[in-house]
Simulated assay, not measured.
Amino acid sequence: MDDYKRKVRELQVERTIKALKKNNMEAEFLPTMEDVLPKVTSLLKPGEKVAVGGSASLEETGVLQALRSGTYEFLDRYKKGLTAEEVQQVFRDSFSADSFLASANAVTEHGELYCTDGNSNRVAAMLFGPKQVILVVSWDKLVPDLGAAVERVKQVAAPANAIRLNADTYCTKNGRCLNPSCSVDNLMALGAGACEHTICANYVVFSHQRVAKRIKVLIVGESFGY
């Protein structure tokens, strides 16, 4: 990316951070992926209980590996050998975590977070429970408004995640959502029953927060995640 394009992106980041702070969320720009791990660990205390939502971003930035270092009481949903019932218990235990780490599917310039989930353990913990929520977000996920956020999920995030999860969905086979365009009728979700095996079960918008600075958004100036 040349300096002129980068400046345009940085101005978008500035607008978004200002709006996030107005919505009672903390927000910070990290220029590179290498800046993520030092920042995340500075927000965590040794020995505290930490959990994560499903996130390719946390894996790509090295956060997951750091959480497995033994420094924290990590509720590792990915631990080898866990049964389906034990994974579900990890999801429930995550509500009592000191810190919950994840990403968002899109962040609007109005300071909103947009997330679409299947099991919805991620959005549930982001909404309530953990004392602190830390989101690691590539600047590729910044969009002008909610309409663009929905488009991004339908065209990029959901198809990529469905393929990664080997899900039997329309988007896995076709590379795009069954209803790729937004309309008054399906701005937030598919029509009832339109996609029988969808991974997009619940759609959540995070706007002005009642608990100031509980949610911390780290916007990173590189491409990663979905």
Rank of each mutant, 00 (worst) to 15 (best):
H208W: 10
K39I: 05
A201F: 07
K45N: 04
P46V: 05
V204R: 14
K7V: 10
V40Y: 01
G70K: 07
A51R: 00
Y4V: 13
Y114N: 12
E34F: 02
G225L: 01
L30S: 05
L190E: 11
S55E: 02
N105K: 03
G175T: 13
D140G: 05
V136M: 02
F206K: 11
C171W: 09
R122M: 07
A148G: 00
I17H: 04
I215K: 14
W139R: 04
L64V: 11
R77M: 02
V90L: 02
K22M: 14
K39T: 12
S99C: 05
V8T: 12
K18E: 12
R152K: 05
A167T: 12
Q89A: 03
L67Q: 06
S94D: 04
N105D: 04
L165W: 09
F224N: 06
M188T: 06
A192N: 10
P38Y: 00
F29L: 11
E10T: 08
S55M: 08
G147I: 00
Q65P: 03
V205W: 10
A51C: 04
V50P: 05
V40A: 00
V133I: 10
A56F: 11
K39F: 02
Q65H: 13
V220Q: 04
A56V: 15
L20V: 01
S120T: 11
P144Q: 02
H208Q: 13
V133S: 07
S99G: 06
A192R: 11
F206R: 13
K22S: 14
I134E: 07
S94A: 12
F29S: 09
S207H: 14
S207G: 13
Y4F: 12
S55N: 07
A104F: 12
E48A: 07
T61F: 01
S120E: 10
N119E: 03
P38N: 06
C115N: 15
R6A: 07
Q132S: 13
F128Y: 13
V211K: 15
V50F: 01
A201Q: 13
D93P: 04
A160Y: 03
L127H: 13
V36R: 01
M33D: 12
G221A: 06
F74P: 03
S69H: 08
S207A: 15
L82E: 10
S57Q: 03
G70V: 07
R164V: 05
V143D: 07
M25K: 08
